[in-house]
Amino acid sequence: MSENNKLVGPLVGVSVTLLTALIGLVTVRSAVASAGERLLTPEAEKPQVAVADQAEVSYCTPRFKEVLQRVLHSCGLSGEGQRRGCKPADVKNFASISDEDFNALFTPLKDRGAVLMFDTSKHELDAASKKLLEDRWFDRKGARYFFVVARASKTGTPSKNRALSHRRANSVMFHLKEIAKDDPDLDKKVGLLWLGNEFAQLSKSYCDWNNSRPNKKCGEEPINRSAFVSWVDCRL
């Protein structure tokens, strides 16, 4: 074997090694450099990531939200106002809405809410009402506000009914305070409305709604001796 031939192997080896290493180094350098450039260049189409938020469902129409907003504002739930709850006259004024339209707004809450029934001229919650109230309360999901719309039937004077309705709303609130003891924001979550017989009385058709006395006879009088309770899944 000649001296030249002996050199072929080493030369090939060195050349292949250097070439391979060079290609590797250049590629590594270029990959790192281009990653560095991309790092400095914001992504044109950055994938959108959903952000955690409160619930917003289909019944949150602009009209619904508008009334809701007014209720929240006027009943002291939004802002730092000291006022708690709304009486019938207030509702009539701030809602700027007819009885039927007011009730229709709550129609989508048929499955989400419940009607707590009271005895005639009474404001105490019975066991079934308490249980139903707890069931609804603990089924909050992503809602921010809990509405309590207390009513009194047409029997008796308007002033007596207004006072009774107010006491019924308070009964619900007191029970909520018992079951949500460690919630300092309870007052900011619960919106109380008490209606006498001058605004938004319920028709008999509301007897079909989930109520605390499903096995008792229902009609226009009993269904208005009630408090409708529901979480409202709207962002405001």
Binding site: K6, V8, G9, P10, V12, G13, V14, S15, V16, T17, L18, T20, A21, G24
Partner: peptide, 15 residues
């Protein structure tokens, strides 16, 4: 592996 490729090439050619 760049080294081992080169060395294998060397040994392959040199036989």
């Amino acid at each position: 592996f760049a080294f081992f490729v080169g060395f294998a090439a060397y040994l392959l050619v040199s036989g």
